[in-house]
Design a protein around this nucleic acid. Structure first.
Lengths: 120, 120
DNA sequence: GTTATAGTGAACCAGATGGTTCAGTATACG
DNA sequence: CGTATACTGAACCATCTGGTTCACTATAAC
């Protein structure tokens, strides 16, 4: 699952659109953790935290493994490559667009000044 | 508004978690557009599209200006800098974490092989 | 074998989301 | 002036979200 780009971006941006889930990811950067540990860290019920982990897992950002009665969560190896690529693409194109706009503004300003010199 | 990081990331990742809204951004990369044009392009009611634009605007990704009866939408200058930074940070830290893990695995593999040589 | 721990699943809740329709208002056009 | 266009706002709808509680299962620990 989480394979076609549009659905994948829906899932992962959706997963990132929540401060608790972003916090969980940052937590897992430091160390793998059980559901209980995460629930404690974010002052939430086990059930609530399990839902968050489920969303992160469905988005492919986290993987979990249950050993005995403990489910350990760790960062998914897939990471955020696709998301980063999408955003970077936007940034590059937007900047190009803004630069073009800036030129127009500059041009107008130059003409305005020239007109000012002539008229005033 | 859209100023403090956590709330800003909530808003912008939330805005990006929808294919229509991502599509609108890509559309605006090519040219500014009115609500009507966007609604047509995405086969949606005016009202529906206005809501999407509202969400993008609240996230600071789009700015709009109404002249006469037409509201023109364009890309917001703020762009996706903060979002890109957050994601890139994650990527760098995750890679470091995976590299560390890889070393452990490699170490174990090496030991395993050495043991194999001795015993077999 | 009893008890404590870790997680799971179902059901519920209030509020958000993604859409619609319908009834306006404001502006442009002839 | 009268009509068409472009948007706006309110209300409604089904579904999803983020959270809870409660009842249950599976595993550890004594």
């Amino acid at each position: 699952m989480v394979q076609y780009t549009a659905a994948r971006l829906d899932a992962s941006f959706g997963a990132l659109a929540d401060a608790t889930r972003r916090g969980v990811l940052e937590q897992l950067e430091r160390a793998d953790a059980s559901i209980t540990q995460l629930a404690d860290a974010f002052e939430m019920t086990l059930t609530g935290m399990k839902k968050h982990v489920g969303i992160l897992e469905a988005a492919g950002l986290v993987i979990t493994e249950k050993v005995g009665r403990v489910r350990t969560c760790r960062l998914g190896r897939r990471g955020l490559a696709e998301e980063a690529a999408w955003i970077e693409r936007r940034r590059r194109l937007w900047e190009a667009r803004f630069d073009a706009l800036d030129e127009v503004v500059e041009e107008l300003t130059r003409k305005e000044k020239a007109r000012g010199r002539r008229k005033r």
